[in-house]
Design a protein around this nucleic acid. Structure first.
Lengths: 335, 335
DNA sequence: TTGTAGGCGTTATCAT
DNA sequence: ATGATAACGCCTACAA
């Protein structure tokens, strides 16, 4: 059984006071080199590990950040979380991850748990149903900074890190036009999300830049569920003048849609080209991937969000002006 | 700005002592009903949140558990982590997740961080290169219980939760034999893993039960990397008497192998049937899934591991006898 | 350069 | 049934 030595124990062994030991371990300049060395040597020898709970208590910091995401099975979030964790660990912080599964009530409960845990800050990607963000505002009011990534509240200035999906969608339209497509549809994401509107605007402007008409019948929305995606696809393929290419809100929608189309007998439908968002690792396992995907910097988005949060945490109570960071998407041809 | 009320604040407002307030909030029987109510009412009104860092300090518990896994991108672990988190949260515990990416050195470092964080316990799936577990033993010696899941140390009695892959592989052989296969190969996982040996034994016994010879040339090992899997496949398909079916250590190996085979010109190879382990959600996106997969109770394995760990945490210093929990795999036909 | 003393917020023990 | 007090381990202002 390895004992848990305390400062006091080391002090006694070294015939010093606990404060001297503490200062030596924390490299206070007032401590003599020789003392510092003696202390550190013994600490190492005894495998002294300062009690983090005591340090947290004393410093009023938990050294942990909360992370709330839709779903860890979505590789976009898996990678983002990895980025967050990496950055956090490198800064002696730990991440506490939780999934809301698109349930706003759950999001609220998790947020409350996070405040009970006394996290020093929170990184969130809200649910598609999050209409109000009082729960997050409450955290901010308690002095716990919140940074959003990808999905963020509408109408509220906030700290956030996102992909430039406006430009991404714009690029996708250009790409498809160059490939000869003129009937380009777009399956939108949940209407409530800002990131849905941004893609939409990129789509509109992309068409305009190519002198293509905006045809509202080429626009359907999916709530991200497979069923909803299928309904959108059904609408699009029942058009007299079908689209020849479809830009999907994200890779998973493209995959669901393509799976569905494959299940249909009408083989010509398989000629419809797809462009998704994410360029997620799992695409490599598909026999028939989408034509292209807009690669997002998932892990980087996560780590920058963490960085931004840490900056706010370090700023303590001083109010910093909301900051938005955007990363470009890169269109990758997949076949 | 919402203030952080303390026990002392409530006490002052209620003209009571802090200890009475504390007892009331914690439902001590010695506190009168009326006092309890007055206290709770005010606490609720002021949104009083006890300082968890103080409670942790006082109680010498961090109320957090560490989780170390190979890689969050592997859906098996994603689901296991979800199970762990769910169980932890339901018990007012938080999970701190970290990935070792098969790097033993990293595993050691993470383990050390976890002890610095003073986690109350640790749940681990070791790396394929983890030859010694001194770092985990050290944690145990410090009074921090460790529970392994899926991948666990060889030669050491330990608390662990696994899938019954012996029976799973046995079932797979039976299944393939019933389908008419006689040349059944097995791509083993990393040799160091116990769970590799267990599958192997199930394979051997499965063949025996069906009066099929054990042909060592039908056995190759993959270190889980795509390259290594490809090399195993190459060996198998260059045999004069090729296998007609292959049992893969896990779904990802089957997927890598099938991708590789698809890239080859010899189309007949695509008739080789595959059986994987996991039946992971992403399989549904494959146009040509393996013939079958042995479904594992990923989330359940995670939550039971958490449950086991909590039991050990609650047992404090009393030594409990090592416990092994196994869940059956269920063979699912996928096409 | 080192030591002393007080306090962080909560809870447990003991006294009233 | 309630209150006073001490203690958890560490840090830091201040004293020596």
């Amino acid at each position: 059984m390895i004992p848990n030595y305390k400062l006091k124990d080391l002090a006694k062994m070294l015939h010093m006071s606990p404060s001297t030991v503490s200062k030596a371990l924390n490299d206070y300049p007032s401590i003599s080199e020789i003392t510092r060395q003696r202390v550190k040597e013994l600490a190492k020898k005894l495998n002294f590990i300062p009690d983090q709970t005591a340090i947290s208590f004393k410093s009023k910091k938990s050294f942990s950040i909360g992370v709330i995401i839709p779903n860890l099975l979505d590789q976009f979030y898996t990678l983002a979380v990895s980025g967050i964790e990496e950055y956090a660990m490198a800064n002696s912080y730990k991440a506490i991850v939780s999934q809301h599964y698109e349930d706003m009530q759950r999001e609220i409960e998790i947020t409350e748990m996070m405040s009970k845990y006394r996290v020093d800050g929170l990184i969130v990607s809200i649910t598609k149903n999050t209409t109000n963000i009082d729960h997050f505002k409450k955290l901010e009011a308690m002095g716990i900074p919140v940074v959003y990534f990808v999905r963020r509240p509408v109408d509220e200035p906030c700290f956030n890190v996102t992909s430039n999906v406006y430009k991404g969608t714009f690029d996708a339209v250009n790409f498809l036009v160059k490939k000869g497509h003129k009937r380009i549809a777009h399956i939108l994401g949940p209407q409530s999300l800002l990131t849905t509107k941004e893609r939409y605007q990129g789509y509109v402007d992309g068409l305009k830049a190519n002198n293509l008409p905006l045809d509202k019948s080429l626009l359907y929305s999916s709530d991200l569920s497979t069923g909803s995606t299928i309904r959108a696809v059904d609408k699009l393929i029942s058009l007299r003048d079908m689209p020849t290419a479809i830009i999907a809100f994200k890779d998973y929608i493209a995959m669901d849609a393509m799976q569905y189309i494959k299940s249909l007998t009408k083989r010509s439908l398989r000629k419809i080209e797809w462009v998704g968002f994410g360029n997620l690792p799992m695409l490599r396992y598909l026999d028939n991937p989408p034509l292209a995907s807009l690669e997002e910097q998932c892990a980087l988005i996560g780590s920058r969000a963490a960085e931004l949060l840490m900056k706010r945490i370090r700023a303590e109570d001083q109010k910093l002006p909301p900051e938005s960071i955007q990363f470009d998407c890169t269109l990758k041809e997949l076949k």
